[in-house]
Design a protein around this nucleic acid. Structure first.
Lengths: 180, 180
DNA sequence: CCCGTATGAATGAAGG
DNA sequence: CCTTCATTCATACGGG
């Protein structure tokens, strides 16, 4: 979607916050104008993926007409755009792969409060206990200071202890999540 | 990005918590069910901060049992959760240091070079109509499968067709961007 | 209804 | 090229 202007019509040319347009304001980060985005997108659509330094220069120059912009912005733009499209594609494709165990249509869970409702009821349907064997390997970043655990690659294959150690209200199974 | 997102007239779902899927309602954004949130939170508490693509897939699959969900939702969830925790932590520490004062000064990002900012400003004097003759040579990567065009070295010097092919609203010039 | 807050989503910028 | 961080935008909600 188009940045913050998705709906708002306020011109982004003049940065509201972090805007660089204002008199002598230093900008935190480039905020492309719609025109700039458009051109970049078109170029991308046309097939441009990794512009050379030269091209970046030119594009940047051209786009500077629409607003402040630096070469690196163009560089990053393509880099990000490409990477994200790829990632999106990756995720989507996998999502499509029906990895899901859609049993039946989700039962409309009416009660949805933030904290209340701790005890989730297991529907009288067939109950399936599936093991969430995530974390086959490196998966954890160092917890922020103060974190209780530090789980790292290969050290944990399940969250048995984790879930068991806390006041989890899931059925106290390892990282098994009971579905029904 | 382009995203078919109606930036404006979003027809957002009725807002049945976590029940976007039910009844064929179209949802604008994922609304996690309590169970989903719970599991995610637990995983987070357990120390998981940045799940790999793989893990994201698995988690997503598991959670899809509780309701509609895509991998990107999981991805974003962790991204946001981590960021916000950090942000909160930061706020706190700042608060401790200087209470009341809302620091507005945003130290312009440490001069992280990298790009020899060659950005030259186009003099308002000379009116130039520069042709974006990009792509003098290898500039395109193979488009992801599904890409419409495949422009390669030397094949295209301008994007006339590109721009002309769409509903561009720029002044309908080739890839010429008219500067004054 | 309007507003404040929590949080999903997007993306610029880096680092590796 | 990949992954991660910071920031910002857009909503969903609940309260007044």
């Amino acid at each position: 979607m188009e940045e913050g202007l998705s709906g708002r019509f306020y011109i982004k040319t003049s940065g509201v916050r972090g805007g660089c347009g204002g008199g002598g304001t230093k900008c935190g980060r480039w905020n492309p104008t719609t025109e700039q985005v458009k051109v970049l997108t078109d170029l991308f659509r046309a097939g441009l993926r990794t512009p050379s330094t030269d091209q970046i220069q030119k594009i940047s120059s051209q786009l500077s007409f629409y607003g402040k912009i630096e070469s690196k912005n163009v560089f990053y733009w393509f880099q990000n755009h490409k990477a994200r499209e790829r990632q999106k594609r990756r995720r989507v494709s996998v999502d499509n792969k029906d990895t899901t165990i859609h049993r039946e249509e989700k039962i409309p869970s009416p009660p949805t409060k933030h904290f209340a409702e701790v005890n989730h009821v297991i529907e009288p349907a067939e109950r399936v206990i599936q093991t969430l064997q995530l974390f086959p390997l490196n998966s954890f970043d160092e917890p922020e200071p103060g974190e209780k655990f530090i789980l790292r690659a290969g050290e944990c294959r399940e969250f048995s202890h984790v879930f068991g150690s806390d006041f989890i209200d899931h059925p106290p199974l390892d990282l098994r999540l009971s579905f029904y």
